[in-house]
Amino acid sequence: MASIVQVEGLRKVYEGKQRVVALDGIALGVREGELYGLLGPNGAGKTTAISICTTRVLPTSGAVRIAGIDVVESPALARRLMGIVPQYNTLDRACTIYENIHFHCLYFGFSRTDAKQRTNQLLEQFHLTERADSYPSQLSGGLAQRVQIARAIAHRPKVLFLDEPSAGLDPQSRIAMWDAVRGLREEGITVVLTTHYMEEADELCDRVAIIDHGKILVEDTPATLKGSVGAQKVYCLDLSDRDSPAALVGQLKLVHGVRGVEPTSGGIRVFADNADGLLPEIVRVSNPYGLRDLTMTETSLETVFIRLTGRDLRE
C-alpha cells in the first residue's frame, strides 16, 4: 500500500557557531489510517522531523510528501491535508474556544454555516461545549490540548501530527488524550506522533520508529520490536565492586535462561527469559561482587532502545 506520509533522505543541518546535524538522512513511510510513533530521547530530531513535515522548517536536503504533495514545493496545498498539534499551546489568545475552532474552519474555506456546524460538532465530540466561551488562558493544560486537537482536525485533514502530545499533562489527561487519539483513527485519520514516553508509543502506535541522533535506528510494530530483544525480562544489577564485572559477565552468561549480559556505568544489565529460579541464581552468582540492589522489568520499547544504543531513553 502506498504511504500517505513519505519521507526520503531527510537531512537538516543548522549552520552556525556550533554546527548541529539535527536530522541525518531519515526515511520512513506512514501508511494510510495508521497510528505511527517517532520514539526517541530529547534532542533526537523528532520535533525537527515533524516541523519539516508540517512546512514550518525547511530541510537541508531530502523530501517529504503528504498524499503525494511535496511539502517544500507546495506548502500551502500540503497544509490542507494535515493538522498539527505542536508541543506548545498555539491557541489564539484573543479568541474564545468556539472562535478558535470557528475561525480555523474559515481559514480553510468553510462557509459560515458549515464552520458553525463543524465547530459545534467538534465541541461536542471533545466534551468542550461547556467551555465554548472560555478563553485559552482559562483552560488547564489537558483541556487546552484537547482544544488544539479539535482545532487541528477541524478541516478534516488526512494526517494529524502530534508533537509530544503528553508533555506536561497529568496522568489522567494523558489517558483522556490517548482515548481522543484512538478515536481519530476510527475516523480514518492517519496519526503521526512523537514521544519520549515508551509506554505511550507502546500503548498507542501501530508502528514505531526509534530515532536517535537524527537517525532512524529501527522501525516496526511495538510487538516485533520487543520480540527482537529475544528476552522477556531485564535485570539491572547495582554492584559496589565496579572494577571486576568482566568475570561476573562471563559467569552470568552461563546461567540457564540468560540471553545477554552487558556492563553498565553502575553495574550489569542482564537480558533473560521467563525461566523459573532465575532470580535466586542471579543473586547467588553476583553476590560475591557486592550486589547492592537489583531491579527487574518486563521487556519494553525502552529495552529495545537500550539494546540499540546502550543508553537509557532518559539519559
Partner: peptide, 15 residues
Amino acid sequence: ITREIDDRVMCPLPV
C-alpha cells in the same frame, strides 16, 4: 512565549 503565530502560519496560503 505564546508562538501563536504558528497557528496563522499553518493556514492554507503562502506564508
